[in-house]
Amino acid sequence: MRHDNATYFQRSILHLLRRVDQCATQLYSNETSDNDLTLRQLAIMTAISREDDLSQTDLVNITGIDRSTVAGIVSRLIRKGLLERRRSAFDGRAYCVKLSKRGLKAVAGADRLYTRIEKKLLSGLPAAEANQFVTTLKTILGAQTGDGRQSARA
């Protein structure tokens, strides 16, 4: 019976995706042991660093993180002094967030960090398979979101 159970989990796409997510999260943790930013917090800050005047709705659309989680993350990052909230230049009723000076320093090097973690995560695959894996993930995500866009690293 034990063998059947192990076989099932080795074939379950949901289980395998969850396990790969756990591995990626652990690699992030190992690479950033001196950093108190979670992977989702860094994803939010990275999105903000690449585009000005983003609202929380924009962050939901870009990262794929749900609205209430984004709101909580933004609030925590503001309390940490990493983000600043201001009125939107486009809509006086809405607020946008931007990186503070501390936030800019915290997000500096995020691309190198992502690349380092991704290389470690995919290190067991030949380059062609690693590229195909990324393409497949993008295809699955595009099909599930219905609009072909891929979420940012979340």
Rank of each mutant, 00 (worst) to 15 (best):
Q41H: 04
L42A: 12
L42N: 02
A43H: 04
I44V: 15
I44N: 01
I44Y: 00
M45S: 04
T46N: 05
S49Y: 03
S49M: 01
S49L: 02
S49E: 04
R50M: 11
R50E: 15
R50K: 14
D52N: 10
D52G: 03
L54E: 03
L54S: 04
S55A: 08
Q56T: 06
Q56S: 07
Q56D: 10
D58Y: 01
D58G: 02
L59Y: 02
L59M: 11
L59I: 08
N61I: 01
N61M: 09
N61E: 11
I62K: 12
I62Y: 08
I62D: 01
T63G: 02
T63W: 05
G64S: 06
G64K: 03
G64I: 08
S68A: 08
S68W: 09
T69P: 00
T69D: 08
T69H: 09
V70I: 15
G72R: 13
I73Y: 10
V74E: 03
V74M: 04
V74C: 14
S75R: 13
R76M: 07
R76S: 15
L77S: 09
I78H: 11
I78L: 06
R79D: 15
R79W: 07
K80E: 13
K80W: 07
K80S: 14
G81Q: 10
L82Q: 05
L82P: 09
L82N: 10
L82H: 06
L83S: 07
E84R: 12
R85Y: 00
R86S: 15
R86I: 01
R87P: 05
S88P: 05
A89E: 14
A89W: 06
F90I: 08
D91P: 05
D91C: 07
G92F: 09
G92Y: 10
G92S: 14
R93H: 05
R93D: 10
R93S: 09
A94F: 00
Y95T: 12
Y95G: 05
C96K: 03
V97T: 13
V97N: 13
K98S: 13
L99G: 10
S100M: 05
S100Q: 05
S100N: 06
R102S: 14
R102P: 03
R102W: 02
G103H: 05
G103T: 09
G103V: 03
L104G: 15
L104N: 11
L104K: 14
K105W: 09
K105G: 09
A106Y: 09
A106H: 10
V107S: 08
A108F: 04
A108W: 03
G109I: 01
G109P: 06
A110G: 01
D111K: 11
D111F: 03
R112C: 02
R112T: 05
Y114N: 10
T115G: 10
T115E: 15
T115L: 14
T115R: 15
T115Y: 13
I117H: 03
I117Q: 08
I117G: 04
K119P: 00
K119V: 07
K120L: 13
K120R: 15
L121A: 15
L122W: 08
L122D: 11
S123Y: 07
S123C: 13
S123N: 13
S123T: 06
S123I: 02
S123Q: 13
S123V: 05
G124W: 08
L125Q: 14
